[in-house]
Design a protein around this nucleic acid. Sequence first.
DNA 1: AACATACCCTGGGAGC
DNA 2: TGCTCCCAGGGTATGT
Length: 293
Amino acid sequence: MPELPEVETIRRGLNRLIVGKTIARARHYDSPKSFPNDSTAVAHFLYGAHITAVRRRAKVLLIDLDTRYTLVVHLKMTGQLVFVGAERWGGGHPTDSLIHELPDRHTRVSIDFTDSSRLFFNDLRKFGWMKLYPTAEVPDIPFMRRVGPEPLDDSCSSAVFIPRIRRRNNTTVKAAILDQSVIAGVGNIYADESLWLTRIHPATRVRMLNDRQLAALLTHIKNVLALGIEMGGSTDKNYVDAEGNRGNYLQFAHVFRRENQPCRRHPDLTIQKIRVAGRGTHICPICQVLPLE
DNA sequence: AACATACCCTGGGAGC
DNA sequence: TGCTCCCAGGGTATGT
């Protein structure tokens, strides 16, 4: 499930592989919501456009074009992007589509470049999308207006974070950090990891936490996201990128998908899976104790 | 405004 | 074996 580190990993890959290329055409396959764009706009502002930059905000990729339009991409949970050209490179949700002949049954969009290389957008559950917007209007997209600070920016300090998370004082801390308007880019994996590191039970109400704990939580969020990027994200299994690397963050995970495996602090105890904020949630029952209200 | 829940969608696994 | 049910989950919509 692509979270900030996975999307950043993809951004870096695409930045190297597609900036400077010219788009010849795009196709979409049996999934209109994956590419909900006006065909006239596509013809005018996508076809023939040169890619000038690939940016990221929260979990959203922004592929800038020299037509003053931007292809805005959200992979949601099961989206992946695969570049096929002189080399093959892919990132996002780990499935066999990363290595299979493309397009396949999960390909929703393909973009052909004039040099005959291609970019495939595959998405098992069809929740993700690629939308064409005028670049100047991207900041006005409702999501962009609401989204919180980039956690890895120096400007995202505890003085910024604490008042934002305190607006969600009566909800669970896990729901609060998953809320993109509180802080950008945190998803289920890094939420569980950062809460374990901070020794906070995910179902703790925000109001039960003092500022010192919230500052520590922010520090751990920054650390797990930075480590995730360093590791190339959590796109696991045996999928290899152009440099022969695979995303291996999950090898370093403390709790995520480690149900019934030993806690790294308490080897005689096992990680438990519970449900918080409607999400599967991993905790150590000793490290993370729910405080009395 | 804050909070909880349903929904979108498909495939994999559990249980019968 | 084949059926049904549940789960995965980011973000939005809806109702309280």
